[in-house]
Design a protein around this nucleic acid. Structure first.
Length: 893
RNA sequence: GCCGGGAUGGCGGAAUCGGUAGACGCAGCGGAUUCAAAAUCCGCCGUUGGAAACAACGUGGGGGUUCGAGUCCCCCUCCCGGCACCA
């Protein structure tokens, strides 16, 4: 064995061995339990950052641990290769997105391999390859035919200067990131996936996911946002200016799940119903406050708003001003709440009192009916709005056991008891909601309804670098899906990029014949949201080379994924879409399980400081943390010494250029040190502010481990028969108990707690004790052999390269890949004496040693006899003695 | 704004079910080794008072429950993630 730890020698050697022997190639094997371990695949942004190292090391530790526990492990890897950054890079560097993407994949694959991941590379996939996305297109056509994909209008960010649609990320402070122009909202036709049809199942199945973090399930529940309420119809007074012209529609029965569909069409359903009388529909979860309604507010896109604006230039201007700004909900929610009276009025369904209708910029067209009844006395937002516009505030709910202080200083939002509410006065809120719904139903002015916050998923993107939507627009046949035989619709890769998608200007792409009638037709030139690709890749890994089908029976062998690992930022969108897709695939017969991911580990963000220079008009130049330094208290760019602006601390991302490349760390210390340091720095679920302080310590520990094994091995072979467990000295006995306590703890830390920092700490503690173990006799050497073997095997999932070398040195002829996880010797854990803490009035005052099997009475007596305790009892009698077995005794005086 | 999470020594963190706060590591300080340095090894290392023994205080801030609270409950502050076209 070499005296020096040389990662630059042993790491490539180990990696080459694993690759040549195809150690990690997974095959379906019914003789072992399967373990499908999946880390979220990376977007090939250029280089790995620390978040990737964290993510993939966590996955690798779990994959390697389960392999040692006898599982048939699959750990695949691939590339989430379509996306906006490729187009940005193409624009900046005048290269094709495809070439840029493939070059990044090649570089990053090399980096991942250098980390020594136990990945089956034979299953590698990239979502931008036709052999992958053709199945996405195939599924699209099936879903379109089933009505699970449909077309409707939707609102996007429009850059009036560059004449392009902008992603939310490209809107900075209300302006386009390149042009600096004020962004406008614009309605365009898009394809939607009917995720709302699965809302109930997506919600209820969360209860069948015990292996998911509670916080993620809570976020998904809130996102789906099922609420029980009442739809209320406010009859419209005839317009003072015009005769009302309700758009004809027989679809007044459409429920909330479809609300978005009609909303986008800006269709008129909102002002119509089955009854001939025009009504304004609102949805509320607080029907008990109905008598407190003092105005009704509609979204700027609401048909009634448009109608009212026809003869009212001021209102038209206000509605137009609501169109300014991004469509992002965060922007909508934080902007100043503004409104304007439409001049139109509705009747209160019970009192027949006329109520004004406002247009308000805070009412969202996409949720419910695009209209709300406002109760300033019992809703904070309505209260603020009413104060601003001098609208009446009419309290109708009071606390069950008290009175309201009038006038109200703020909205009283709790449920309570109704007053000033006609026949409903005196009823409790819940009871009143039921009764009011019933009476409204009898009057045909409303009914109980369930709504969801969840909206259907708009998947059209007006971008180039994505999967083409397999639709042909035929002037005679309409939207026709591309038949299986004509798939895939291949995205041309050799393109020139400027503003706007090149395939929209490429007749060779969009000119085609209608698959139905053979007439002249045009292809859809929008591409799909990249979330579509990442919604099913986990299943394709089971059969990535299958050219005949999207999935085959191997998917049912491997699925569901036993352990999914990825950033907490995906808690809602990606994970919800993937769950949705799994159910879609189940319902077309591709998989037989209900959920894709049995266990989920949400890794905390690796965050880093951001730095930028303002280029004006909302444009910023982001500067990498590696390129700045502090000079005399000022943060400056190293290159020119000029100051930079310090931004916030945010997740490492391409867009903020704050990713730290792990390559120099790996080059300097090796992959094992990088892996060990990353796992030791913090528990996986916690967010981690990046700092390389402590890397030295991780490397030092590995050198120390190497040296300890080296010295042990150099001292000669240890006879396996020289180990006499009954003849251990007390110190040796204590050490062996520590060893087996640590094996118990580390197993639990990795398998159940998934907290690797403490698993590493326990091994360090054991190493510290081992180094202090005196003596060179056969007993001691056998004990050290047992401990070193266990430490090396316990650390193997985390630092596999060094452990491969060390196990070969400790047990010549053994192979790490065949090695099993260390087994606990329960008999080593037995103690005959334990230490108990002594408290007086909850304060620590001393400790005693008692026999492990001492009775409660004898423990109490021993505690009361202790001089440490008596000193603080001041001669007073014990009022109470609390004995916590195995822990402490608390004496209350 | 809404939803979710977090805050513990100079720093990263530990304390797993309400029961010894600060494991393990980093940095720092002192010592050994060395011609010297690096590396390595040994020791100290929450704050205040004290020569020490020891005592008091101490887990973002305020209040509460409990024999006992970093952990549970209420209120607040700040930070991080998400908010449907970043992935």
């Amino acid at each position: 064995m070499e005296a020096q730890y040389r990662p630059e020698v042993i790491e490539p050697e180990a990696q080459q061995h694993w690759e040549e022997k195809q150690i990690f190639k997974a095959t379906e094997d019914l003789s072992k339990p399967k373990y499908y371990c999946l880390s979220m695949f990376p977007y090939p942004s250029g280089k790995l950052h620390m978040g990737h190292v964290r993510n993939y090391t966590i996955g690798d530790v779990l994959a390697r641990y389960h392999r040692m526990k006898g599982f048939n492990v699959l750990q695949p890897m691939g590339w989430d290769a379509f996306g906006l950054p490729a187009e940005n890079a193409a624009l900046a560097n005048n290269v094709a997105p495809a070439g840029w993407t493939y070059a990044n994949i090649d570089y990053m694959r090399g980096q991942l391999k250098r980390l020594g991941l136990a990945v089956d590379w034979s299953r590698e996939l990239a979502t931008c390859k036709p052999d992958y996305y053709r199945w996405e297109q195939w599924l699209f056509t099936k879903l379109f035919e089933k009505g699970l994909i449909y077309k409707k209008m939707a609102t996007v960010n429009w850059d009036p200067v560059d004449l392009t649609v902008l992603a939310n990320e490209q809107v900075i402070e209300g302006r386009g990131w390149r042009s600096g122009a004020l962004v406008e909202k614009r309605d365009i036709p898009m394809y939607f996936m009917r995720i709302t049809a699965y809302a109930d199942e997506l919600l209820s199945e969360l209860d069948n996911l015990p292996g998911w973090p509670e916080r993620v399930k809570i976020m998904q529940r809130n996102w789906i946002g099922k609420s029980f309420g009442v739809e209320i119809h406010f009859p419209l007074l005839p317009s003072p200016a015009l005769t009302p012209s309700p758009s004809p529609s027989g679809r007044g029965e459409l429920r909330a799940a479809d609300a978005g569909e009609k909303a986008g069409g800006a269709g008129g359903e909102g002002t119509t119903s089955a009854s001939p009388e025009p009504v304004l529909k609102v949805f509320t979860t607080r029907a008990d406050t109905l008598f407190g309604v003092t105005y009704v507010a509609v979204a700027a896109e609401h048909p009634l708003a448009h109608e009212a604006a026809a003869g009212n230039p001021e209102l038209a201007a206000f509605i137009h001003s609501c169109k300014q700004g991004s469509v992002a909900e965060a922007d909508m929610a934080t902007m100043e709440k503004k409104g304007m009276d439409t001049g139109r009025k509705v009747y209160h369904p019970f009192t027949n009192e006329p109520i004004p209708v406002f247009v308000a910029n805070y009412v969202l067209m996409g949720y419910g009916e695009g209209a709300v009844m406002a109760v300033p006395a019992h809703d904070e937002r309505d209260f603020a709005f009413a104060e601003k516009y001098g609208l009446p505030i009419r309290p109708v709910i009071k606390p069950v056991d008290g009175e309201l202080t009038l006038p109200l200083g703020e909205a009283y939002v709790e449920q309570g008891v109704l007053f000033d509410s006609g026949d409903f006065s005196g009823r409790a809120s819940q009871d009143a909601i039921e009764k009011i719904a019933l009476v409204l139903k009898n009057l045909k002015l409303g009914e109980k309804r369930t709504t969801y916050r969840l909206r259907d998923w708009g998947i059209s993107r007006q971008r180039y670098w994505g999967c083409p939507i397999p639709i042909v627009h035929c002037p005679t046949c309409g939207d026709v899906t591309v038949p299986d035989t004509q798939l895939p619709v291949v995205l041309p890769e050799d393109v020139k990029i400027d503003i706007g998608s090149p395939i929209k200007k490429m007749p060779s792409f969009y000119e085609t014949a209608c698959p139905k009638c053979g007439g002249k037709a045009e292809r859809e030139t929008d591409t799909m949201d990249t979330f579509v690709e990442s919604s099913w890749y986990y299943a394709r890994y089971a059969c990535p080379e299958n050219a005949e089908a999207m999935l085959d029976e191997r998917a049912n062998y491997w699925l569901p994924v036993d352990q999914y690992i990825g950033g907490i930022e995906h808690a809602i969108l990606h994970l919800l879409y993937a769950r949705f897709f799994h159910k879609l695939m189940r319902d077309v017969g591709l998989v037989n399980s209900n959920e894709p991911f049995a266990n989920l580990l949400t890794q905390g963000m690796v965050i880093a400081d951001t730095y930028y220079r303002d280029l004006g008009e909302g444009k910023k130049q982001w500067i990498n943390p590696a390129d700045v330094e502090e000079r005399e208290g000022v943060t400056v760019l190293k290159a020119d010494g000029q100051p930079v602006t310090v931004g916030g601390t945010e997740k490492m991302a391409k867009s903020k250029n704050n990713g730290v490349d792990p390559q120099s760390l790996i080059d300097q210390y090796g992959a094992d040190t990088a892996r060990l340091f990353m796992m030791f720095a913090a528990p996986p679920e916690q967010s981690l502010e990046w700092s390389d302080a402590g890397v030295e310590g991780a490397n030092r520990f590995l050198r120390r481990l190497w040296k300890t094994v080296y010295e042990h091995v150099e001292a000669g072979e240890v006879g396996s028969d020289g180990f006499d467990l009954s003849g251990l000295t007390p110190a040796q006995h204590d050490f062996r108990r520590l060893l087996h306590t640590v094996i118990t703890k580390v197993s639990d830390d990795i398998e159940r707690r998934k907290q690797f920092n403490t698993a590493i700490a326990a091994n360090m503690e054991l190493m510290n004790a081992l180094v202090k173990l005196e003596g060179n006799d056969a007993q001691t050497r056998a004990l050290k052999q047992e401990a070193l073997e266990a430490i090396v095997l316990m650390l193997a999932p985390i630092v596999p390269h060094i452990c491969r070398s060390l196990i070969k040195a400790l047990k010549p002829g053994t192979c790490l890949m065949g090695a099993a996880w260390p087994v606990v010797d329960e008999s080593a854990l037995v103690r005959d004496e334990i230490e108990l803490m002594l408290q007086v009035n909850g304060k620590l005052r001393g400790k005693i040693k008692v026999a492990a099997d001492a009775s409660k009475d004898s423990i109490e007596q021993a505690a009361l006899d202790s001089p440490d305790v008596q000193k603080f009892m001041d001669g007073k009698p014990a009022r109470k003695v609390v004995v916590v077995p195995g822990r402490l005794v608390n004496i209350v005086v």
